[in-house]
């Protein structure tokens, strides 16, 4: 055969092989239809900050009959394993099974729970305790330097002692965090750093004092400067978008939403009747009042005596990176960071 003909044959065979080989998995896929199912979407999903605790509650009540649980009992469940029911005295330092506390309890210092602690009543943990999960039906008090690996949830107030780590915490009541507490996600009504803080700023009072509907400009204010400053005690009655950083000097007020495509810094005594959304970091000075949400794609820092949100409406503080809270601040009601949050 002529060498050119040979070449053509080789090309033809090569082409056929190159087409057929990738088709083998295709034929297999069309034949077995494996992996064809639609991606799961939970059509009933609805956002709930206490969803984990509620889900756990359902599992727990399905697995154990808690009405007949008395101290000393050990109950087995296929779903959740062994449940140990404890009385008022904690005899061990380390509990390896899930624990149920039917009565008001005081956990001694340095007790370690390798699994969940479920309590029907109020529980007080001493210092240096460790648990995977704590779920209580009433108040929960954690001493200093406790470490909760996954989450805590209480129907009553939560008090967290100095330098504790709580990861996720939720309650429909108040949550008090002492200096040095670290967290990932919090939900409470409200979240307070240091329980000595006891005041609420009045949004209605400020609105009555300053706000006249006719004064509000519905058009967005676009600011293209690299850094824009709202001067001391100035008042702005419209929403704004800045392409660079924003600085609000002492006592400045904004009645509207703020979007900053950079960092935003508020000096002390500032007020915003709206949300602050920032591509950069957000720094809130002392004694500021933000009646809306704080959302940062970087970090958030809030100084003492500041308040976020009001008791009338749930608001959020959300940051992709760090959140640093000073002592004596109040947040209504939700706080979340992808990294770590810290008080102090």
């Amino acid at each position: 055969m002529h060498s050119v003909d040979m070449l053509i044959w080789q090309y033809a065979i090569g082409t056929i092989v190159l087409i057929i080989l990738p088709m083998i998995p295709v034929i297999q896929a069309v034949w077995d239809k494996e992996g064809y199912a639609p991606l799961p979407v939970n059509l009933k999903y609805t956002k709930d900050p206490r969803a984990i605790a509620k889900q756990f509650d359902r599992y727990f009540t399905d697995a154990y009959d808690i009405d007949v649980l008395e101290p000393g009992a050990r109950i087995e469940s296929d779903k959740l394993g062994t449940l140990e029911v404890l009385g008022p005295v904690f005899e061990k330092n380390v509990y390896r099974e899930m624990v149920y506390l039917p009565h008001k309890s005081v956990v001694p210092p340095e007790t370690k729970f390798e699994r969940e602690v479920v309590a029907r009543d109020e529980v007080v943990f001493g210092d240096h305790c460790y648990a995977r999960v704590i779920k209580t039906g009433k108040k929960l008090i954690l001493g200093e330097e406790n470490c909760i690996i996954r989450w805590i949830d209480a129907e009553g107030a939560i008090y967290v002692g100095k330098n504790s780590h709580i990861n996720i915490a939720s309650t429909p009541s108040t949550m008090h965090l002492e200096r040095g507490v670290t967290f990932h996600r919090l939900y409470a009504y409200p979240i307070l750093t240091s329980h000595t803080f006891a005041f609420k700023k009045s949004l209605q009072h400020i609105r009555d004092e300053h706000l006249d509907e006719a004064m509000i400009d519905k058009n967005l204010l676009y600011i293209s400067e690299r850094t824009h400053t709202l001067s001391q005690n100035s008042i702005l009655f419209r929403s704004m978008v800045t392409q660079g950083d924003l600085k609000m000097e002492r006592g400045a007020k904004v009645f509207g939403n703020i979007k900053v495509n950079g960092d935003v810094t508020l000096a002390e005594d500032c007020f915003v009747d709206g949300n602050i959304i920032a591509e950069g970091s957000i720094t809130i000075g002392e004694n500021c009042f933000i009646a809306g949400d704080l959302f940062s794609r970087e970090s958030i820092e809030i100084a003492s005596y500041s308040q976020i949100g009001t008791s009338e409406h749930t608001k959020s503080v959300v940051a992709k990176k760090r959140i640093r809270l000073a002592e004596h601040i109040a947040i209504f009601n939700y706080l979340l960071t992808d990294e770590v949050g810290e008080v102090g």
Binding site: P49, D293, R297, H313, T314, V318, N333
Partner: peptide, 12 residues
């Protein structure tokens, strides 16, 4: 990854 706003909880 840029965070969308779905984590904001706000009943207003």
């Amino acid at each position: 990854q840029k965070l969308y706003y779905q984590d904001i909880m706000d009943n207003e």
